[in-house]
Design a protein around this nucleic acid. Structure first.
Lengths: 193, 193, 193, 193
DNA sequence: GATGAATGAGAATTCATTCAT
DNA sequence: AATGAATGAATTCTCATTCAT
């Protein structure tokens, strides 16, 4: 039998993705899992803690899934770098659709209890993108006057925009080669000299 | 004296922007305005109705502020077109910072009561961007194989990404000429042949 | 121009009859009259006072409309007595339909503020019926063992039952000769030797 | 321990009978039962639902308590029929005094939410009385020109009039043989040839 | 007399959390 | 470990009444 704690997280992710954090009640979650209310509190101190666990899970997934160093080694120009990065990103997000939806949605919202975690998340992403940025610049793959701030906006903005829409539309196979190609093409063009 | 209704909307926008819809209570709003609870309900049927009014206000602002036809007339290539559009967009959003934050944040969330309104908002934006897209294509300013879907992702993704961060960081003068230039540059490069 | 006070009472009666005391709001009343809320309180101390005035009005109408002494003089047997009484009663109630509905409905309900008034109303009716009862007994028109309690139940029960249904069904001309005949026939039979 | 749900209904009936639906607050009910507010909502969706349950309970009681077919079989003339019916009715109502008061009182009032239920109640009563009426006519126990409408008024009017007064006066033993006799006597006389 | 914006006490309802079993 | 009935603080909303203009 799967771990209770994970069962609960899975149910919660489904509900959060479809109804949002505030409209998902503990009652909904335990109903979906098929346990009693009290049981929930054996595994999570509170609804907040559950949510924090989800953020951490997403962090871990990305951490383990995206390794800039690896991508650097595999790529020999801006085009190939961006393409691999986009493919990796889509692969992770696409295999955790509901969790991705939850994070995308709630990360822009403003719950005092979660901002801390989301800031950490953002910091790590920034760190990853910064190392990518350094590499691309060193290699002369992107303009000298290209500053990191906008490098970040282009990457994050385009990818999140696509993710949000494709995931919410619930497109089964949105990580097609075509989408990866197009996405990386546009990003590459925006960033290239 | 300013209209009560607007006073309430202003206070609500401030609070929604900082604490989110769910964490802002009617009590917070009336305290900020300095009125009694009952007074709130003279001007709004409910908290929901207040929020819907805010969405409509944003729609109106954008509707009146962005006129693709005008921009088309004033521009003679992709570069100038994008620049004017970006400038106009930033001007509107920048002069209604809190409202923009509220809409950006809550529009990705999933409140059954609001999805309808947000869908309308998205439809109108799509319509605007489609007419821009048609013009650019007719004039040969963008690639033939550029499809609207990604045209939309690039525009919306980059702009929203910038807005969200700049607004939340509360940068007083984020609509500098430099930001407009950079933003439009990246978008233009992404879209150009 | 009609007296404001009466205008208000008329509007209130209409609303009370259709929606009941609790579901009729001061706002409804002033809207129907076409005056401001404050104006209402120039003529009535409170919603309660308005309602008490209505009860008193009904009392007055019945007081002035039903004169047992008169009916006694005009009748020469149980049949004629009951018939005249029923006719008079229906005439009064029928020409104040809404007010009658209001009183019939609210008199059985239990608002502490009104029980006093309704008790007075009941006392006066009891007094009227008692004098009728005395007369009928003296004349030997009703059985010796007929006690007043049931005499009262028969009269009040049958008439109220008919009134309630006919009024609520909103039968325009419910006070037809036929209804009067039937009603008095049944009552008479119930009471006769 | 008695069922919570029934405990709540019992407390509510007492309060509704004494103070009416509108003057009885959820707070009153839970105080009388000795539970927290939230507990109320574990057993009833709302105050309305609680009231609807009470109406249905009364319907069930009457349904199970009065069987016209049975009464027909046990009786051999109008007198005996009416007497048995009156006795049965008084027995049911008398053993659920408060509930009867509540229903008698609120059924004449005009709450949009309850009219539906009260109409059903009235329909069932009409059906019962109609079958009684048919039987009595077939057997020649009541006049040929006696129409059902007035048959209904006599029965319902007299019985409700007695019930309302006796119950509100809170006469402990109002279902005495004497009251049954008198009541059925009057009704019988009113209806007989 | 007339107004109607403002009031605020009070009511119904929700839901995360607890705890005795 | 598991349960689920019970809790009550917190929240939204209502509406009779007031009072400055």
């Amino acid at each position: 039998m799967r771990e209770r704690r994970e069962e609960i997280m899975d149910a919660a992710v489904k509900l959060f993705a479809h109804k949002g954090y505030y409209n998902t009640k503990i009652a909904d979650i335990v109903n979906l899992v098929g346990i009693a209310k009290g049981t929930f509190y054996l595994y999570f101190k509170s609804k907040k803690e559950l949510f924090l666990s989800l953020i951490k899970k997403q962090r871990t997934l990305i951490d383990q899934g995206i390794d800039i160093k690896n991508i650097v080694e595999e790529s020999n120009d801006l085009k190939s770098f961006v393409k691999i990065l986009v493919r990796e990103a889509f692969k992770i997000y696409g295999s955790n659709k509901d969790l991705t939806i939850v994070i995308l949605r709630e990360s822009v919202s403003v719950n005092e209890d979660f901002v801390g975690e989301f800031k950490i998340m953002d910091k790590e992403r920034t760190k990853r993108l910064k190392s990518a940025y350094s590499y691309l610049k060193e290699e002369g793959y992107i303009e000298l006057d290209n500053d990191f701030e906008f490098f970040y906006y282009v990457f994050v903005g385009i990818i999140e925009s696509i993710l949000l829409r494709k995931l919410i539309m619930n497109e089964e196979e949105f990580i097609s080669e075509e989408v990866i190609n197009k996405t990386s093409n546009y990003i590459e063009k925006a960033l290239s000299i």
